[in-house]
């Protein structure tokens, strides 16, 4: 059994001031890891949806889920790692794009299904979506020196099939 698995936990949270701090606070106070955290409103204005990616042993993940459920502002949550789910993350990368590099960068962006959103003489700004791993792979595929800036949204996800998380 892997002792340090990656888990993506998706949470429906009361859209109240301070609710996000309660989640963030829990992780820092109890020493749990957060790899990424993304949060935004939902179709229901009283709720926000928060996705967080964390690492830990089975026992720690179990505690994280229990502790999150204990927060009064947490309405529902699902550990997406436990079901079949799609993971998506948005990344914007500003790269150098001069000389030979210019064509190569475009080609790589195409291979990864990215779009070039902005072009200057010397740079491209590329948009990419996918699971975190794919985004990592893209960054590995292009020359390190070519990267000027990287912005990632953090992972979000949704379960496959008919299952839906709602209040």
């Amino acid at each position: 059994m892997n002792n340090n698995n990656r888990h993506m936990i998706s949470i429906l949270l009361e859209n109240e001031a301070g609710a996000l701090s309660r989640v963030a606070n829990l992780f820092s106070a109890r020493g749990y890891n957060i790899e990424s955290l993304s949060v935004a409103p939902t179709d229901d204005e009283t709720l926000s949806r928060l996705t967080l990616v964390t690492y830990g042993s089975e026992q720690i993940i179990e505690q994280i889920v229990k502790q999150l459920n204990k927060l009064v502002d947490v309405v529902k949550l699902i550990d997406l790692t436990e079901t079949e789910a799609i993971e998506r993350e948005l990344m914007l990368v500003k790269t150098k794009a001069t000389g030979e590099q210019r064509a190569e960068m475009k080609r790589l962006a195409d291979i990864f299904g990215g779009h070039v959103l902005d072009v200057t003489d010397a740079t491209y700004t590329i948009e990419l979506t996918g699971a975190g791993k794919k985004l990592d792979n893209f960054l590995r595929a292009i020359e390190k020196d070519a990267i000027l800036e990287v912005v990632r949204s953090g992972a979000t996800g949704i379960a496959l099939g008919q299952k839906a998380l709602h209040a």
């Binding site: 026992q59 179990e62 505690q63 229990k66 502790q67 459920n69 204990k70």
Partner: peptide, 11 residues
């Protein structure tokens, strides 16, 4: 009564 008390320190 608190699920987080269960199996926190001891399985």
């Amino acid at each position: 009564i608190d699920p987080s008390s269960i199996s926190k320190n001891v399985r």
